[in-house]
Write a protein that binds this DNA or RNA. Structure first.
Lengths: 250, 250
DNA sequence: GCGATCAGCGGCACG
DNA sequence: CGTGCCGTTGATCGC
């Protein structure tokens, strides 16, 4: 397939709001929030009707070069190459150029798709479940709605314990690291200052790194091992266990 | 194209370590770290030789469903559908299934590509530049190598000022938020405890959110507005300006 | 291998 | 819009 034909395919795809696929050897240049250069190699170019522009190599999950939705795509053919550009101004002016030196394939496809992904086991879903079963953490714990969203971020779950003390619960669907412990500390600290009362902090996650656990202990926070299961229609919390290094080790 | 032919194309692509593209109407199911269901619609399926499995809709940058490198891909055709599965066990057992009810296109491509992306303007590059021009921040500031990597993360740049005080410099290539301010605070606090001496904290970024700036001020840290430019072969720092709300406002 | 962080992060939800 | 933060985050670097 020659460059002129490929350019025509791309233009017609853009015009008809169709997905366009191009396979061939190309060089890619990008300049915008950063800048990059990719020397010649065989790649797949995906152009979507919304302006999305993806350059994929033969391996790895992520596109090696890309432009997000909202880009204006153009195709220009000469005798020596096909240049496909995508330009946008949204976060800032950004341009990507793919210079094809060889075209193996170029075709467009009409894709009708109104479906949205249904996802189960998100943190949001787990938080909802856990808020209804706070006794799994501790007897007498009740959820509170008030003030659960600070100007500095939203608290996953806010509750009061049997003594009436505020409890900030930070939930992580996967292993917690320093960032999670830090985030919890920030919320607790902010709430203490704001309310001027005793505030406890609890981190719930399937696992935790040693450093993060150490930080929790130093700050007097607690960690609960979260055991949950992802059934297909929804998620279920199997249990919560307080697992913390004791100060008194035998 | 019928399901049997498409299955044959996929199998031969896997065998020959080629990229394979499939376009058609499908349902997608995923179960692993989370679970998801996507009802029928037209999609592009990209299968890479390394096991990468990407399901793309007609819009948006990210794959709506996917499986990372290392997955084992299989294709099975019946009279009613083509089922393509990808299974892996790396972070945990994960399975994705695409059930094609209609095939518009299926083809494989040999893609030779040994090139690696050259990226300019990364944080790493900026840090290297800035470390050589610390006078842009303050006269008398000199870089220190010692202890720049704590057990809890690595400090971007560690320096000593004219008075001999340690200075932790946290660099952000883009707008800094609460997380950046928190991170700086963590490093400074750790270093103070570890060294038992005065430690200053400086955040350098093109922009900063009001909350993050407020947190810096509360903790007595400083913010420098970073002005840099991304030339194509490398990045250049144009300047650094101390920009902080003064306690004494007129 | 784990642990921490960066990413041209992207995407979403909330104010 | 910005601000914050989750993500089946992925990818990278250091230990």
């Amino acid at each position: 397939m020659d460059f002129g034909e490929a350019a025509a395919v791309i233009r017609s795809a853009l015009d008809a709001e169709q997905l366009c696929l191009v396979v061939g050897a190309c060089i890619v240049r990008y300049e915008g929030r950063a800048a990059s250069k990719l020397s010649e190699g065989d790649r797949l170019l995906v152009i979507k009707p919304d302006g999305t522009f993806l350059v994929h190599q033969g391996k790895g999950m992520t596109a090696i070069n890309y432009q997000g939705p909202g880009a204006v795509v153009k195709a220009e053919a000469t005798n020596e190459e096909l240049v496909v550009t995508a330009e946008r101004s949204k976060p800032m002016r950004e341009v990507i150029e793919a210079h094809f030196k060889r075209i193996d394939f170029a075709q467009s496809f009409y894709m009708r798709d109104d479906s949205k992904l249904k996802l189960f086991g998100s943190e949001r879903e787990l938080a909802k479940l856990l808020a209804q079963d706070l006794h799994l953490i501790e007897k007498g714990l009740v959820p509170v709605q008030e003030e659960s969203s600070l100007p500095k971020g939203a608290i996953d779950i806010l509750a009061r314990d049997a003594l009436g003390h505020l409890v900030v619960i930070e939930l992580k669907r996967r292993d917690a690291g320093l960032d999670a412990a830090t985030q919890l500390a920030r919320y607790v600290s902010e709430l203490r200052k704001r309310k001027g009362e005793v505030v406890r902090g609890i981190l719930c996650s399937p696992k935790i790194t040693p450093n993060a656990l150490k930080m929790l202990e130093e700050k007097g926070f607690e960690w609960f091992k979260l055991d949950y299961e992802i059934a297909n229609p929804s998620a279920k919390i199997r249990g919560l266990q307080k697992k913390q290094k004791m100060m008194t080790e035998f």
